[in-house]
């Protein structure tokens, strides 16, 4: 009985707090109402476009029926857990995204350094050009790689011209190398833009002091600049890695003989409409992404987050 009473109490409490939000009497309660008014539209969107579909996807992975959610079955999860193919796909996705992140962030640091520390001509144009690929969908990025490394690609044709070998043998756009360049192509701009934000906050007095005390440019970078931009590098790596995991269009076009999670989901649906398995992969993916984001953000200050 006591349990039921306390449930009744908590319902009453919840109702009264809803009541104070809707009909506030003090300034503090009015502020709460304002917060509610301002955040409710976002929550409505997040619930109906985000959480409900995700919950439905979880149900979908446990559905017995293929075309709609009916009956219960854990077959898809059993397949996912026992079939080694899926483990390999997960592993491939992670290392490939991690490697692309590493390369992109490293290049991003160098590019941001050059833009921030040197007075280069046409700096505005360079920044605009570097940010341009952020706007490109994955399929267009894939085309850019074909332009560079395809059979008629600029690099392919150049190498073919100098080495005398056939361009068809030299084309690498649809290999794993081409795919990697595709990843890096879409990630370098993001990494660079995040790191530019970090570089803007670096204390230049300390760098000048180090230089005038006789440190070489590299020592200055290693001991003074790097510790200051390290939080930005961590934030950049986390955000870029998240973007890398979500890449789909580029892989769909280039293939590269390499299957990542997003492509596999598409394949599961395209061949035999294995909706339960596709949904199960999706659930694992989202769970991983959420866990990674919340763990990752513990090491990052909120103002460093940018996309």
């Amino acid at each position: 009985m006591s349990v039921r009473l306390s449930i009744g109490d908590s319902i009453r409490q919840a109702l009264s707090s809803v009541h104070t939000v809707v009909f506030p009497t003090t300034e503090r309660e009015r502020e709460r109402r304002r917060i509610a008014i301002m955040t409710i539209p976002f929550f409505v969107l997040a619930i109906f476009a985000g959480f409900v579909p995700l919950a439905t996807m979880l149900r979908m992975s446990l559905s017995e029926e293929q075309l709609f959610n009916e009956g219960w079955s854990v077959d898809a999860w059993e397949t996912l857990a026992t079939d080694r193919t899926y483990w390999w796909i997960g592993f491939n996705t992670l290392w490939f995204a991690a490697a692309a992140t590493l390369v992109s962030v490293a290049i991003g640091v160098v590019v941001a350094h050059a833009l921030e520390k040197y007075s280069l001509p046409f700096e505005r144009v360079i920044v605009a050009a570097v940010s341009f690929p952020i706007a490109l969908p994955g399929i267009v990025v894939a085309f850019m790689i074909v332009v560079l490394l395809g059979r008629q690609g600029l690099l392919t044709q150049t190498v073919a011209f100098f080495s005398g070998r056939s361009a068809i043998d030299l084309a690498t756009a649809t290999t794993i190398g081409g795919l990697f360049l595709g990843y890096v192509y879409s990630l370098i701009p993001r990494a660079t833009m995040i790191l530019r934000g970090t570089y803007a906050e670096v204390n230049t007095d300390a760098e000048e002091a180090a230089r005038s005390l006789g440190a070489s440019p590299f020592e200055t970078f290693r001991h003074v600049t790097f510790p200051e931009i390290r939080p930005g590098i961590v934030a950049g790596a986390i955000l870029v890695f998240r973007s890398a995991l979500a890449i789909f269009g580029t892989v769909l076009i280039l293939q590269g003989g390499f299957v990542v999670v997003t492509l596999r989901i598409d394949r599961e649906l395209a061949v035999g409409f294995n909706s339960q398995i596709a949904a199960a992969i999706g659930v694992v993916y989202v769970a991983f992404l959420i866990a990674f984001t919340f763990i990752g953000l513990r090491f990052v200050r909120a103002e460093q987050v940018a996309i």
Binding site: L239, I265, S275
Partner: peptide, 13 residues
Amino acid sequence: ILPLVPGVILGIA
């Protein structure tokens, strides 16, 4: 500020 669901997966859902 962080998209928690990528487009492909939101699509199936």
